[in-house]
Amino acid sequence: MRLPLRELKWLRKAAADANRPLDALVRRRQQGEPLQYIIGTQPFGPLELSVRPPILIPRPETEHWVIELAARIPESARHLLDLGTGSGCIPLLLAHLCPALSAHAVDVNPAAVTLATENAARCSVTRFRAFQANFLDPDFHVHAMLCPPYDVLTSNPPYIPWNEYLELPDEVKNYEDPRALFGGPSGLEFYHAIARLAVRERFLSSDAIIALEVGHDQAEAVGAIFESVSLRTEAWTDPWGKKRTIIAYRGT
């Protein structure tokens, strides 16, 4: 496999920066390892995050909606919760862009919690705490580390349905954590759990904003899930023209 010139340039820089042999990096890339894991970082907005397998690599679609969301979060918002945080990209960028926010982040994988905590230090975001928890757990809402009500709820939950999971490129399937990708048979399992949390008494503040990334053809279904619990929703389009983000509001 011949590498695109631009990838080669990035690898060359990574090799020079960390004093690593270039041919080893190129070989890893040729074997299909994601560029971001080889380099070890991924820029996300103005931040530069550490990434390592198998924690989900932050995607450009996510970067786009998170920057848009930062502009829409009211100045009165104080507490944010991110579900399934991975590298911590969403809460860290929001806390960076909205200085009044402090963020809690959870992930089922302790390795993600470690990475997100490391990234907070790397980006000098102090108003941040990540901890291990499974938000599908029926008792999640009473987890000792949580301190509701939250003003902002974000998530890029696993949303790939079973049939599409099997079709994923090797670059994704062989390197990134299935727990960050596989959204159950329908791909929608996690949205149901998030909708239940969103309408739970005093879990969110009365004018909270909820922002969720969705798969390429899920906007309508996810919108319907949140409307069925009487939340107002809208869909945001990503730069490639896909409806990528469902925004749900508790207020009127």
Partner: peptide
Amino acid sequence: KIEVMRARGAGGQHVNKTES
């Protein structure tokens, strides 16, 4: 007018190629 270049298929979690 801000445009992104190249198609990304399903995009999101489905793709981890660098398209910037």
